[in-house]
Amino acid sequence: MTTPAAFLTEEMRQQAIGQKSEPRTIDVEKGAIVKFAQAIEDDNPVFNDDMAARDSRYGGLIAPPTFLRSVGVDRPSYPFDLPFTRLLDGGSDWEYFHPVRAGDRITAISEITDINERTGRMGLMIITTIVVTYRNQFDQVAATQTSTSIRY
């Protein structure tokens, strides 16, 4: 086995870290929440039934914890070409600060906070840590999502 030539230099790492996406804003619609809850097969009334949710302490529908995925925030672009076409999602670490309610307007921005290369059983891989910050219409951070993306 020969060691593949290292791709990522320290200079490239520093160029990539801090790269941000354009902000993306969506209005959280009741129907989108219910559709998401149905897709993950979670029948909790606070995600599915507006009338029942009105009697909960939220006073209306709220979104399931991973609903914010559906905001569809762009990934930050890399300031160089990556010689890989394949992409795997390594995992996610969410922190929650405010519930996401039907009717909220959520703005998301993603940012590269770390990037490294590693050689695994699939060959050379670039592992990027991306933090997405989701803010609501009151400029409160509703949640942050730290995810690991693997390109190989």
Binding site: R57, P65, T66, L88, D89, G90, G91, S92, D93, W94, E95, Y96, T148
Partner: peptide
């Protein structure tokens, strides 16, 4: 009455 503060997983 519970609040989820953090949820993390690795694939």
């Amino acid at each position: 009455q519970g609040d989820l503060k953090r949820l993390a997983c690795q694939y």
